[in-house]
Write a protein that binds this DNA or RNA. Structure first.
Lengths: 135, 135, 135, 135
DNA sequence: GTGGTCTAGACCACG
DNA sequence: GTGGTCTAGACCACG
């Protein structure tokens, strides 16, 4: 699992780990059932405090992205959102609104937003192994 | 100007103000040249300290969203980002990536992302007054 | 890091700190990666409030001169301006115009401006360590 | 006398007037002995408070740029700097240092500083009427 | 220990 | 009346 932390970012280290693990899972860099390094190993390889690594895993578990099997380690969880369809869309809508607001202030027109999103989506899907048919 | 702060949010109060003012401007709820409430009035209406309200305005001015006219108050600026094209796209790209990652974890397929974005964009533009052509 | 504040100056205390830190970095008195005193220590040594010292560091971080590493302190950043080329030249042009106007009123002819600038530039570069080529 | 004030600038209005009058004199847009509009007329034409216009003239008088002849009005003064040669160079040096520091942080190399200064100097001299020989 | 946020309250410049 | 600066002092997140 290859993560790259930016220690001088305003985003806390644990949150960077959360974001990147979610990105890995979303892009297919990690698949359901894959095992993650132990908290201890992760902390060593990222050169962060062990508490930082542990906090990241806790957050990811809380979100349902990872699951810990006692004594066996931490794995990418199968479960997708426990939230209702309405709640899931509400959350995405909030992010979409922030994107649109930011694009407006960065003076980036709608057409360019669309093409940028398509480009990024494509970049994600390049990394994803072929679907097994189970979505 | 109607803002709603959530004191229990992890987002600092001043940052909530910044976000909401940017959203108002982007959505057409406020237009270039419109005057904002004075720092003192805003502080009273949001029940925050004057310094907190002032900090929000200062951040917005630093971003080029607002402009302060000495002794006269604070206004929506004509804008146009001062950042390099590269920096502007880098910022939007980060938001786009987060949106795509989040959509995956919320189990919302790409086609629905596109339609949601279009819907939100439309909602924004409904509020925006038609251009008069006079700049 | 040796700074000298003039409490009777029209320039705010935090802005004096900003100016002097930028001068230190530009002249090679501080190098990329160097750690600055903590906000608390700086406040004590300058006999200003902690908030004032913090504000100076925040401005410098916003300008890209410093970078903060959560829980570790504040460091000289690798830099490189985020502004557009146009904006960067506009800013320098304003300073150049002020210099030329002032030189006229001080009755200092163009030829002497050039030689003074060269002298000062030389003084700056004397202090700057030779590049190691390693960036 | 054509001045252009930017009400949303951080520079106070009176200081903008001071700067621009000095620039006019330096560039030859106004010459020694030329009469300036009355405080009242200036205030009207710039649409500023009369106190603002008066303060600008006071500052310019204090610097020796303008002189008021009681009952006759305000004129561009002949006198150049009352300061010693050393003091005059010290003042220009301060501006030069600020320019060099800023150029460094804007990532503008020395060669470009020189060419920019030359360009601006040229722009100034274009406006200046031919010397009468008295400098 | 590090920086970030917030309040209460004072003083000041600008216009 | 407007925003800007500064202090004293408290609390919090991060690591």
């Amino acid at each position: 699992m290859q993560l790259h932390l930016d220690p001088s970012s305003a985003t806390p280290l644990y949150a960077q780990v959360v974001e990147q693990v979610k990105a890995l899972v979303a892009s297919g860099g990690m698949r359901v059932g894959d095992q993650l390094p132990s908290v201890r190993d992760l902390a060593v390889s990222l050169r962060v405090n062990r508490n930082t690594a542990a906090k990241a895993y806790q957050m990811l578990e809380a979100e349902g992205v990872l699951a810990t099997r006692a004594g066996h380690g931490t794995f990418v969880a199968a479960g997708s959102s426990r939230w209702s369809r309405q709640e899931r869309f509400r959350r995405l809508e909030r992010l979409a609104d922030r994107l649109l607001v930011e694009a407006h202030h960065l003076n980036i027109p709608p057409a360019e937003i669309a093409s940028l999103l398509e480009r990024r989506l494509h970049a994600f899907e390049m990394n994803r192994p072929k679907s097994t048919g189970k979505s």
